[in-house]
Structures are given as structure tokens and as C-alpha cells.
Design a protein around this nucleic acid. Structure first.
Lengths: 183, 183
DNA sequence: TCAGATACCTGTATCTGACAGATAACTACC
DNA sequence: GGTAGTTATCTGTCAGATACAGGTATCTGA
């Protein structure tokens, strides 16, 4: 499990020229690490798409269980309490129409309740039902169990590191997105 | 706020083993960490899906550039050399039909070349073209640049840690998938 | 009151992938 | 050789997640 053993002889992209100074060599290394992160993330994401399509880890749906979108939406509601569709979209980083559909699906499954906001006739307050929260907990436990299996060989420290680094990565990706959207 | 303060993240025993009767507390903590990992990954993956749909980081297509699927396929070819469709599907963890279509798209764009295997008339050998490899390198540079921006505030050590942990995570997810498929 | 902003919903399109079935080619065995 | 079974690929069809555009209802301020 050597550190990022980049067994990756991509035909190009090698910073040309024999490196002379240490700083140049360091930059090349930094670049490689970024490339490795980029590649690993791409692979991770594609794998996840495949996983979602088939029924592997925590997926099922159509029988009342949650897919990832529903899971994250419900999780947001469970964490922040009842929210408007717009607020959900904002927190989830999604288009409002997408959230509308996800909420509709969750409502159909009995996981959330929708109600007009009495103080704003345009707005809809989305609130988790008890059944929804139960399903959320069960789903979360199932997903966590999968990761307990996947990460069975990891030390506690490495798991903690992964959790923290992923959190930071998410935060920084979020910041990046905002940086790009705003200006 | 570097995570890797003590640079020994080796699978050594948990530091501060002073906790004696706290096995219950430790289990709860371990569970929380798994839950955090699970949640962060779910968020990461969903974010990526959104990113793909809009045009943010490394997406463009239709003008000869690569989407993520094409990128990974081309990368596999660049790393392993010419491969059959089946071998590609196996390495990418995808259904053969999916690879067929991705290869067709890449061929249309001039990024790969297809040829019947002379030793097996059923098989098709997929090979990257020079243009494809160039595009791969350019694409990879662009994506790497995005991550250089996203991870701009990270220490070199944390980046290296992330790269390693992601690599291990991918490997273990792969192993998990095989464990589930085979038996 | 009326214009504009806001919140949500619906219609439509795209991207990615899977599964099932069709076709062509190879392999074994009699 | 002929026939059956296997394998490699392709094609048809479907589903999920999401975006964008446009529509309707509602609110807000002058």
C-alpha cells in the first residue's frame, strides 16, 4: 500500500526536460499527486454510477427504500428540519426542478410530507415523516455496514483520515463551485 | 490544520491506547467515522453527477473533447495498450454493451481505432489514435488544473494522503464488488 | 393596483448505464 | 464435415438523475 504508487505510464503529460533544481522536481511530484487524485476520483465516481444502476451496496427503491438522491434529501431534512424546496435545492446544490421531483417521489413513498407555508402561499414546506426518518436510519445503517465491510482492513486512524479528508474535499469542491458561479 | 500532523498513519495500533474500559465508546466512534465516510462519499458522488450535467470542471464533449467515460476508457487504453472490448469492460467494471457504445463514440471522434482481431474474428481490438492520446493528455492536464485550484489550500502531505487513501478505497471497493459477484 | 420578483411545477432533452436479444465466429465432439 | 454450445460484439429498449425553459400562483413595493 505504498503511497500512491502511480503505476501510470501515460504517454504524454510528462513535464519535459530533465529536472535540474529541486523545486522543479517537487513541482513535478505535486503534479503527479494531483493527477493521481484526479484519476482516482474519476474512477470512484464512475464506479458509483455503475453501482447506482445495478443494485449493489445500498440501492433498492421502488419498494419504499431510498436511492441516493432521496437519501441525501432526507438526510438534509433530518439534519436541518423542515425546509422549503428552494432551501433544499440550495443546500443540496441542485436545481429546484430536480428537488421538486425528488420530493414528489419521496412524498409518494410516504417519506416526506408537503404543506403550503401559511406565511407564504407560494412556498412548500417539506418535512420528513416518521416513516421517512425510520427509513433514513435503516438505510444509513445498511450503507454504513457496507463501508464497514469495504474498509474492514483499514486502521482506525486511516478511516478517520479518510473521513476528514473527504469532508475537506467536499467543502473545497463546494467553495470551488461557488467561486465559479458567483463572478 | 493539517491532518497529517504525526506522519505515521501506518496501520499501527491506535495511538493513545490509554482508553481501557472504553471499548463501547470506541465502537460508537468507529461507527460514526464510517457513517461520516459514507455520507461524505454520497455527497461527493452526487455533486459529481451534477457537475457532469452542467459543464463545470472537465466536461465539454460534442466538439471532440472527452467526457468522463471516454476519458477513463482512453486512459485504460493508454495504460494497457490495445484491448478487446471485453477486456475493456472488465477493467472498467462496465457492461460490454456500454463499452461498445463508448468505443463507438470515441471512434467517431477519432480518438480510437477499431480493428478485427486477425486471430479471433469475433473480437475487436480497440487502440488509441495519436489524436486520442493527445486529447487524453490535454484533458488530463485540464482536470488536474481544476484540482490544483480546488486543493490549493492543502499541504503536500495531505494531498499525498488523499491520493493514497482514494487509491486504497478504489481498490477495496473493487475487491468488495468482486467478493459480491463471485460467490 | 400593477409590475416585477419569487416559488414551485411540468415538459422536454441529455447523459450514462443496464439488461435482453440478435448476429457472427470460434471450439468440441461425433 | 456437421451440429451444438460458447463467446464477442452490437442493437433495441428502458430507467435514473439532472438541467433548462416555460407556465402558474403568489407575494411585495410604489
Amino acid at each position: 500500500m505504498s503511497v500512491a504508487s502511480g503505476n501510470d505510464r501515460s504517454p504524454a503529460a510528462s513535464p519535459g526536460g530533465a529536472t535540474s533544481s529541486a523545486s522543479e522536481r517537487e513541482e513535478a511530484t505535486a503534479h503527479d499527486v494531483l493527477g493521481a487524485i484526479e484519476l482516482e476520483l474519476a474512477q470512484l465516481l464512475r464506479r458509483a454510477e455503475r453501482t447506482r444502476a445495478s443494485g449493489a451496496p445500498g440501492t433498492s427503491r421502488r419498494d419504499g427504500t431510498l436511492d441516493r438522491s432521496g437519501y441525501l434529501l432526507l438526510h438534509t431534512l433530518g439534519t436541518h428540519g423542515p425546509l422549503h424546496v428552494t432551501a433544499l435545492a440550495e443546500r443540496l446544490g441542485l436545481d429546484g426542478s430536480t428537488v421538486t421531483r425528488q420530493v414528489a417521489a419521496l412524498e409518494h413513498a410516504g417519506h416526506v410530507r408537503r404543506a403550503r407555508d401559511p406565511r407564504d402561499g407560494r412556498a412548500v414546506v417539506v418535512e420528513p415523516t416518521t416513516a421517512g426518518l425510520d427509513e433514513l436510519a435503516a438505510h444509513r445503517a445498511a450503507r454504513t455496514a457496507v463501508y464497514a465491510d469495504v474498509l474492514g482492513g483499514w486502521s482506525r486512524l486511516d478511516r478517520a483520515l479518510l473521513a476528514e479528508l473527504l469532508t475537506r474535499l467536499n467543502d473545497d469542491l463546494d467553495a470551488y463551485r461557488h467561486r465559479r458561479d458567483a463572478p
